[in-house]
Design a protein around this nucleic acid. Structure first.
Lengths: 236, 236
DNA sequence: GTGCAAAACATCGTATACAATCTCGCCATC
DNA sequence: GATGGCGAGATTGTATACGATGTTTTGCAC
């Protein structure tokens, strides 16, 4: 068997048009070109991609199933604005599933996969040292790709889809509540995890993963930002 | 705090019409009134619910995101027919997440929740002893509700949604590959798990859960049923 | 009777049209 | 000056219409 990670890119492609729009918007959200709360009106989306509202609507619906946009009845679709509680749930879910995914991935991993992961890391490191918006966006994506690739290697496409959702939503949460400028502070931690897998130290790898997730979460400021557009907003 | 499990039923209701159709079809699938492979044409669904194809289509799309129906481009939607490999992935995913959910649920469980769970079990037992199709269907649902309720109690709505998907798809798998007549053979196992939680024996509860899932899976005959409408079908 | 081609049919993919609902500004009123 | 209703505009919810694609059937040739 070859590397499971690389087979990934072979998409069915040519999906039903709405899929392409969905993917485009998702990418924009994950890369933070679209901020939480931004309104995504069906007409605007349709015009932007030169399709009818029908397809725009379908794409937005799809994104709402992934939790990336929230559609409010008769009001429209908005880029999701996860509440602090939602944010905690997202990371709680990640702590719940990622160790398990890691274990399954470790059981099936091939040398090719490890090579691929290390390559990913290198790329990530390179982007970190670079300046500029595009580099920043690419870095955000690369950081998530590490976790995603582990899910791919695990061979369970259901968990893989779930992780895609979790990583995408995590990106939203970090955009909203992240404090440190370095978006993917724990770069080296990814490398440590791979090393632990290579050394067959599974328990340690899981611990590292948990710490890594906790580390990301620790960088968030999850205090209720209740509207507070009232007295408190002006008394200082 | 009161019982988390009961708050569940308070739905937003009145969702956008398509939701109702989606829920109706999902229920039909989970209760096995619709068999895997059944064609769900957009027109038929629309006529059945007295809505246009637009809404029918939206509902079917939604179900395809949950993996309960598969839509094939230009051919139509069908009740999903999970392959043996998919079936294995579904149960693998359940083994991966359910112990974690159980742990979180145990940490937040209230006496009211336990009462509710035991009530669920009683109902399940009653249905098991009853005869008839409707009882059988209700039993299937009740069996899944136990696992779902644990997810509700865990307080993580993301994991809850994921479990809903997994339980629904499990029902499909059992419909396809299940052997034993008793659909939810492991009824007593549910009770054992609750008891273990009550006794604060978390590790044992997790073990029981894993055994329970393995037990369900062991009842499946996951051999490739390749068309076999050929020679093999007649040589005996 | 068998095999292939083409047309008829059914079904999906997408666009457009109309109805329902919400938003927001304007004016009258208190 | 603030408040509440009313109407125009904007946006979503749903239905219908038309073109594209796949499937089945028909019909002709062999």
């Amino acid at each position: 068997m070859k590397s499971a990670a690389k087979a990934q890119q072979a998409e069915d492609s040519a999906e039903t048009g709405a899929q392409q729009i969905r993917d485009a918007i998702r990418e924009a959200i994950v890369e933070r070109r679209l901020s939480p709360g931004t309104k995504l009106s069906e007409s605007d989306v349709g015009n932007l991609f030169n399709v009818s509202r029908t397809l725009a609507r379908a794409a937005l619906q799809a994104l709402s199933y992934e939790g990336l946009v929230s559609v409010e009845k008769n009001r429209g679709a908005f880029v999701a604005y996860p509440s602090p509680d939602e944010a905690r749930q997202i990371f709680s879910a990640r702590r719940l599933v990622e160790p398990g995914i890691l274990r399954e991935a470790a059981a099936r991993i091939t040398p090719d996969d490890i090579t691929y992961l290390r390559q990913l890391l290198l790329e990530e490191g390179r982007l970190m040292s670079e300046r500029g918006q595009t580099a920043r966006r690419a870095e955000i994506k690369a950081s998530g790709d590490f976790h995603l690739t582990l899910a791919v290697i695990s061979g369970n496409s259901i968990m893989q889809r779930f992780m895609e959702e979790l990583v995408a939503r995590s990106s939203l949460v970090i955009a909203l509540y992240g404090q440190s400028t370095a978006s993917s502070c724990g770069h080296s931690e990814h490398g440590d995890i791979i090393s632990a897998i290579e050394a067959d130290e599974l328990d340690r790898a899981c611990q590292l993963m948990l710490h890594h997730i906790a580390h990301i979460e620790a960088d968030l400021d999850l205090r209720e930002r209740k509207s507070l557009g009232l007295k408190e907003a002006f008394e200082l």
